[in-house]
Amino acid sequence: MLNVFKGKPKYMTVKPEIGKQKEFPENLWTRCDGCGKVIYNKELDKSGYLCPECGYHFRVGSAQRLAMLVDKGSFVPFSPLVASNPLDFPGYEDKVIKAKEKTGLDDAALVGKAAIDGRECILAILDFSFMGGSMGSVVGEQLTRAFERATAERLPVVVFSGGGGGARMQEGIFSLMQMAKTAQAVGKHSRAGLLFISVLTHPTMGGVYASFASLGDIILAEPGALIGFAGPRIVEETTRQKLPSGFQTAEYALEHGMLDAIVPRPQMAQYVSRLLAWHR
């Protein structure tokens, strides 16, 4: 019953690279989904992709996230893995190739060893721009290796989740099993007495939310992030009920006891590093 977001503009932020609306020539401008203000892209770059007017958190790529989070030059990525097509699902290889070309990433997870404000950790960042940040065998394996490496080196893990698709449909049962595989890697790390900080960014849904992302010792979220198991459209269609306002936002999840805290992006690095420091 996983919902895979696909071309649903209602929940898409306008990314600078696809801000192709005619009234904003040359991708110089982006309209804020929060307040509708038109923002100069250079200004967005400088603000860490926050709306200067309303503080709306635009989605950021993994490279940008990395740059605003870790100590300069500290990130050492794991060796890359590349998706195969275990079900011979038609069109999957093309989709992966296109996503690679578009993003310059190998798959949806950027994983490596890093330092945040001088504190060493294993860091994983899911990138929405690569097939919606969905988890197939590669993402599952990378996350698993992240927790295994952290367990071996007795390091904390910090994961920024953000994948509207949850599990990657094109890998069928193999995707589903990544939920078990990653949850078990988290379990071993946890049972070794080590810290896992799970940060939920927009959007964290489906099989990503229903596995490792939910299993943090501390679960944080960015303001406004969509968080849940079933997508809002599926919930609406199944229940034929009007969704409550703010349904499945980080604020809603906090109110219902599903999060430890909401942390605005500018405070994130400091917030995480403080928690890392207290769990030496």
Binding site: S79, V82, A83, S84, S137, K181
Partner: peptide, 8 residues
């Protein structure tokens, strides 16, 4: 469980 290519 999982099928992928290991680049290295």
């Amino acid at each position: 469980i999982g099928r992928f290519h290991d680049k290295s």
